[in-house]
Amino acid sequence: MSAEAAAPESPPGLSPVRPILGATRSNWQQGLVWAFVVAPMLALLATVPVMWGWGLGWYDVAIAAVFYVVGILGVTVGYHRHFTHKSFKARPWLRIMLAISGSLAIQGSVMAWVADHRRHHAYSDKEGDPHSPWRYGTSPTAVAKGFFWSHVGWLFERRKTNYERFIPDLLADRAVRRVSKLFGLWVAVSLILPAALGGLLTWSWAGVLTGFFWGGLVRTGLVHHVTWSINSICHMVGRRPFRSRDRSRNFWPLAILSMGESWHNLHHADPTCARHGVLPGQIDISARVIWLFERFGWVHEVRWPTTSRLTKLRAR
């Protein structure tokens, strides 16, 4: 599919139709993408021999778990439901904290992530979608190629999504722009802090190394692949209880690790809804976090699902 093709009208809230793609990444920016995609992936592959050789301490598990939860909730609650879809409004301080915690997942700055995701919804599984698994067709070879593209291949595209078209609201937000420009700092914090905690908890250089490996690289790799699986698996495998204009599906095995994002079919049927897991037994941790924020008075105007809305969206 060519991303320069004629585009449909932008969804409500986006600027008038403009080119989908914007600036091109420089060579060093492209190099950083390769580094932060490949290094955590290699760390994941190395976990078995590392555990076999010199074990995994409880402090490593604790550090990795804390940074995993903070980072992935920053993406699911912050980057996705708040900044991309405006499922709720947040107090200014919480808005900044959500942008920073999402940055700790090392999936790109808040502005880049939101621009790509809004573009995905504008063209979901059609020409212009940055990561549809169906871009090459439906033959076995095309599906395999499409899966790789939607899971990780699209990240290496040098052309960026057009910010002026897809995120004019964030471009006008000085605080969000500042957090986005400091993305390199948040990446450093995300990798250095687990190492520092490992060293302090064990008072050893070995603790620094294992904290960096498990809490930095392995945790980042796991966050990456869980998130990327929503792009790939959740557009290929699973049930479709709600009507949507694309091939989005629910994939229950990822519900806990993705904090509720794998209830992807309802999300595409009703993108601004603050809860994705709306049927009995569908655990949605991100929605529960938003509910807690609402109870504390930190967020308001939450777009919770209604019975009438869900009835209208059910597949016939």
Rank of each mutant, 00 (worst) to 15 (best):
Leu185Val: 15
Val179Met: 12
Pro253Gly: 14
Gly211Cys: 13
Trp263Val: 09
Ile233Arg: 02
Ala172Pro: 00
Val237Lys: 09
Ile167Ser: 09
Trp205Asp: 06
Leu201Gly: 05
Ala196Arg: 00
Arg158Pro: 07
His224Val: 00
Gly211His: 00
Ala175Arg: 14
Leu222Arg: 11
Asn231Thr: 08
Ser229Ile: 09
Ser180Tyr: 02
Phe166Trp: 11
Arg239Met: 10
Gly199Cys: 02
Val208Cys: 13
Asp173Ala: 09
Val223Ile: 14
Phe251Thr: 04
Lys160Thr: 08
Pro194Gly: 11
Ile233Gly: 06
Ser262Ala: 14
Val218Lys: 09
Arg249Trp: 03
Pro168Lys: 00
Ala195Glu: 05
Val208Leu: 15
Trp186Tyr: 15
Val237Gly: 01
Trp186Thr: 06
Phe166Ile: 03
Val187Leu: 13
Val218Met: 04
Leu254Pro: 08
Arg177Ala: 11
Gly260Asp: 01
Thr210Val: 01
Gly216Tyr: 09
Thr220His: 14
Val187Glu: 00
Gly184Ile: 05
Lys160Tyr: 00
Phe251Gly: 00
Gly207Tyr: 03
His235Val: 12
Phe251Lys: 03
Asn265Val: 08
Phe212Lys: 01
Val176Trp: 00
Ser190His: 13
His235Ile: 06
Glu157Lys: 13
Ser258Glu: 08
Ala195Phe: 03
Val226His: 07
Gly211Ala: 07
Gly215Cys: 01
Leu185Gln: 06
Val208Met: 14
Phe156Asp: 07
Ala175Asp: 15
Ala196Glu: 07
Asn162Glu: 07
Ile167Gln: 06
Arg158Gly: 12
His225Trp: 15
Leu171Ile: 03
Leu217Asp: 04
Leu197Met: 14
Glu157Gly: 05
His264Phe: 01
Ala175Gly: 00
Ser204Lys: 13
Arg159Tyr: 05
Trp205Leu: 14
Phe183Gly: 01
Phe212Glu: 00
Trp228Gly: 02
Leu266Arg: 04
Asp169Lys: 04
Glu261Val: 03
Gly207Glu: 10
Pro253Gln: 07
His268Lys: 12
Gly260Phe: 04
Ile233Tyr: 06
Thr220Trp: 08
Arg243Ile: 03
Ala255Ile: 06
Asn231Trp: 02
His268Thr: 04
Gly216Leu: 08
Pro253Cys: 10
Asn231His: 11
Pro253Leu: 04
Leu254Val: 08
Pro253Ala: 01
Gly198Val: 12
Cys234Ile: 09
Ile256Gln: 12
Val237Ile: 15
Leu170Asp: 01
Ile192Val: 15
Gly260Tyr: 07
Ser229Gly: 10
Thr210Ile: 02
Ser262Val: 11
Ser229Phe: 02
Trp214Phe: 14
Ile192Met: 14
Leu257Thr: 11
Ile230Glu: 02
Val189Ile: 15
His267Glu: 06
Leu182Thr: 03
Arg174Trp: 00
Val179Glu: 04
Arg245Tyr: 03
Asp246Ser: 08
Leu201Asp: 13
Ala195Gly: 15
Asp246Met: 05
Leu170Trp: 10
Ser248Gln: 05
Ala175Leu: 10
Asp173Phe: 09
Ile256Glu: 09
His268Ile: 10
Ser244Ala: 15
Ile230Arg: 07
